[in-house]
């Protein structure tokens, strides 16, 4: 059985769900935001080795004991009952929910895409750069700091080619594109003491690359961000930038597979830059990154590959059991 951990507004999740249903599967969809108000979970363990779990959503009970593959797509924070008013009580309830749910994840005899723990570790940007560099991928010189002096020094050392800066996270409310540090912004560097910032070498680009990895399959695409009005961050000009399939050199492909394997990721959306000199520079991997914008422009069958992976893993699990 297939489990999808996502919510009703996740366009990518709905696309996969639709295709899976078309292929005669009936995945269990679990929206963590509905727990514990609208969703009940029961996990039971009795004799040694005997374990079973079920979830009830909208009055429908689904046995999750036989989940063989689980897609960790868009878990949302739990939403607690309004009846709990006291903040400490709420914190306690939230912690209990988290403990029970993570316990359930661990109990599932399933292949995870991706394993929640590995997903979290792999999302650490500094660690990504360290691992990528060790594997032999070129990475940008980087300084992550809360020290205004260190930031200023890094920017000075980068010199006239420029320094780019970006944040770790992006929420809809606090969304900032990757930017080149402007001279007048150096006066504000004192503000890095409030929250760390990622400063990086400004890597010139011939094209930006988005490589979507689905199990053994790899879908590299090039995004001609330099042909747009904002060449520093392809996300800003998605509709303007031509996007085409790309062929990676074999060594780079091998290194990326090694990176995925290091982090234990089955799925990943990798961002790289191809410099005018022909260098491939690794920027980051997003363990739950979007892919539909690539699929729609390149016709690379990424969603089908994901569905294949989920269905095959489910079947393999049943055979194994």
């Amino acid at each position: 059985m297939i489990l999808l951990v996502t919510h009703g507004l996740d366009e990518h999740g709905l696309e996969v769900l639709t295709r899976l249903r078309r292929r005669d599967t009936d995945p269990v969809v679990l929206d963590t935001a509905r727990f514990p108000v609208e969703m009940a979970i029961t996990v039971e363990s009795s004799d040694p080795g005997a374990w079973n779990g079920n979830v009830v959503v909208e009055g429908v009970e689904r046995d999750v004991t036989d989940i063989r593959v689980a897609w960790w797509r868009r878990p949302l924070p739990f939403v607690l009952h309004d009846d709990i008013r006291d903040e400490e009580d709420r914190a306690f309830a939230y912690g209990e929910c988290h403990a029970a749910i993570t316990g359930l994840w661990s109990c599932l005899d399933a292949l995870w895409i991706n394993d929640p723990g590995r997903d979290e570790v792999a999302a650490r940007k500094m660690y990504q750069l360290k691992v990528a560099s060790r594997i032999g991928l070129r990475t940008p010189r980087t300084c992550i700091t809360t020290d205004p002096l260190a930031a200023a020094r890094f920017a000075a050392d980068e010199g006239p080619t420029g320094t780019i800066y970006k944040s770790f996270s992006a929420t809809e409310k606090a969304w900032r594109e990757t930017r080149v540090l402007r001279p007048e912004e150096r006066d504000l560097l004192d503000n890095v003491r409030f929250a760390p910032v990622i400063f990086q070498e400004h890597v010139p680009a011939a094209v930006d690359l988005r490589i979507t990895v689905v199990g053994d399959r790899m879908f590299p695409a090039e995004i001609a961000s330099q042909e747009t009005a904002y060449p520093h961050d392809f996300r800003m000009m998605m509709n303007d930038a031509p996007i085409r399939p790309h062929v990676l050199p074999a060594p780079v492909e091998r290194q990326l597979r090694e990176l995925m394997s290091w982090f234990g990721l089955v799925y990943g959306a990798i961002d790289m830059r191809l410099t005018p000199d022909g260098d491939y520079v690794f920027l980051e991997v997003n363990p739950a990154g979007q892919w539909l914008f690539i699929e729609q422009r390149t016709e690379q069958p990424i969603t089908e590959a994901l569905c294949d992976l989920l269905i095959d893993a489910d079947g393999a699990g049943i055979r194994a059991g």
Binding site: Y165, A174, R176, E177, R179, N191, F194, A229, Y230, M237
Partner: peptide, 18 residues
């Protein structure tokens, strides 16, 4: 207003996007 994280205290750069 001072006291904002650096990344939020600087303006967007992308021209007219969005």
């Amino acid at each position: 207003v001072r006291g904002r994280p650096f990344v939020l205290s600087t303006p967007h750069h992308a021209p007219g996007v969005g």
